[in-house]
Deep mutational scan, measured.
Amino acid sequence: LRTVEMKKGPTDSLGISIAGGVGSPLGDVPIFIAMMHPTGVAAQTQKLRVGDRIVTICGTSTEGMTHTQAVNLLKNASGSIEMQV
Rank of each mutant, 00 (worst) to 15 (best):
R53A: 11
K8Q: 07
R49I: 07
H37F: 07
S78L: 06
V22Q: 09
D52K: 01
M35K: 15
N72P: 03
T60K: 15
L73N: 00
D52H: 04
A34S: 15
T56H: 05
A77K: 12
H67Y: 12
T11Y: 14
G15Q: 00
G15N: 03
F32R: 11
D28F: 09
L48C: 08
V41Y: 07
I57L: 10
L14H: 00
Q69Y: 07
R53W: 08
K47C: 10
T11N: 15
V41K: 08
T62I: 06
F32K: 10
I18K: 04
A77Q: 11
K47G: 12
S17K: 15
G40L: 03
V22K: 13
N76Q: 13
S17N: 12
T68N: 12
S24H: 06
R49F: 14
I54T: 01
R2A: 08
K47V: 08
A77M: 10
M36I: 14
D12Y: 02
R53M: 13
T45C: 10
P30A: 05
M36V: 12
M36S: 03
N76S: 13
I54F: 00
T62Q: 01
R2M: 13
G59K: 07
P25V: 10
G9K: 10
A70N: 00
G40Q: 00
T11W: 12
L26R: 07
E82W: 11
I54G: 02
K8W: 15
G64K: 10
G59H: 07
Q84C: 10
Q46N: 15
V29N: 01
G59T: 00
I31C: 06
T11G: 15
A43V: 06
M65I: 05
T62V: 10
S78N: 14
V50N: 07
K7F: 15
H67C: 15
A77D: 06
V85D: 02
V55Q: 09
V50D: 02
M65S: 01
S17F: 11
G9Q: 08
E82P: 07
I54R: 02
Q46D: 12
P38L: 01
K47Y: 10
Q46S: 11
S24P: 02
L74C: 06
D28W: 07
I54N: 03
I16A: 02
Q69F: 04
I18D: 00
R53P: 07
P25K: 10
E63P: 00
P30E: 08
I54Y: 02
V41C: 08
D52L: 03
S78R: 13
M36G: 03
M83K: 02
N72L: 08
M6A: 02
T39F: 12
L73Y: 05
L14R: 03
D28T: 05
A19Y: 01
M83G: 03
K75Y: 11
F32W: 08
I57M: 08
G21Q: 02
R2S: 09
A70H: 05
L1Q: 01
C58D: 14
A70V: 11
I54A: 02
P38Y: 02
P30L: 00
G23H: 05
C58Q: 14
G9P: 06
K8Y: 08
K75F: 08
E82T: 15
S80P: 12
G23L: 06
I33L: 06
M36N: 00
T45N: 08
